[in-house]
Design a binder for these strands. Sequence first.
DNA 1: GAGCTACTATCCTGACGGGT
DNA 2: ACCCGTCAGGATAGTAGCTC
Length: 243
Amino acid sequence: MQFPSLKSAKLIHRYKRFMADVELPNGSQLTLHCANTGKMTGCADPGDTIWYSDSHSTTREYPCSWELTQLNNGDLVCINTQRANALAIEAIHNHLVPELDSYEHIVTNVKSGIENSRIDVLLTNGPQPDCYMQVKSVTLVNNHTGMFPDTETTRDQKHLRELIELHEKGYRAIVFFCGLHEGIESFEPSIQNDPEYSSLLMEAMAKGVEVYAYACKFMRDGQYPTGMQLTHTVPVINNYKNK
DNA sequence: GAGCTACTATCCTGACGGGT
DNA sequence: ACCCGTCAGGATAGTAGCTC
């Protein structure tokens, strides 16, 4: 995935979930839209270098969107969660996800038939059972281990219950953790942030819901981020049974 | 003060209506 | 039938305002 043209700035503070004030290199201030509803632990600290895109939209009150955070060690984190779905779909298209290589048709944001909710991705291919997949973006990292969620999330608990239900109905059901943070070498659910979610994820795995975690690579032109792509799967650690 | 509701901003998809 | 524009729904957590 190629990024739109990005510009750098220094984060002043994030507020009201969707907004962030930044300081531009010329010293002026700008308010950005922040397309991440999570807690953004570790990637939204005042003083962080961030990269943003400009949609040039005349209808948006804040036409610029916060895309990346650059950590002190130079690692990049994509905080725009909408990129996760696109990355996952691109990876499937490019045959980078062998577990899903057998599907020809991809539909996004489809109704699952359960409680009027929607599933991120539906994969189909003729007589094969349809495959429902929820894509989760992972930006929280602790010692090279990607963690999800970064806060208590009843919404994601609901998604897991739906996937379990879909699997019990005979469909293939998948949770796809999309590592948007450079340096992820493994993945585990965050018991600290949401023990209920962690328990449910393990229950889902035990019942046959498939769980995959993928790491990404950022492309650069010098220091300038130009794009990113999912590269390889990383192990999913079942930490719940030990707690 | 506690609890509830509406609002905040944005994007994406699907549904729907109107015009060609 | 097809294209285009518009609107609703879903998702999110903090905050303000309202009621009890």
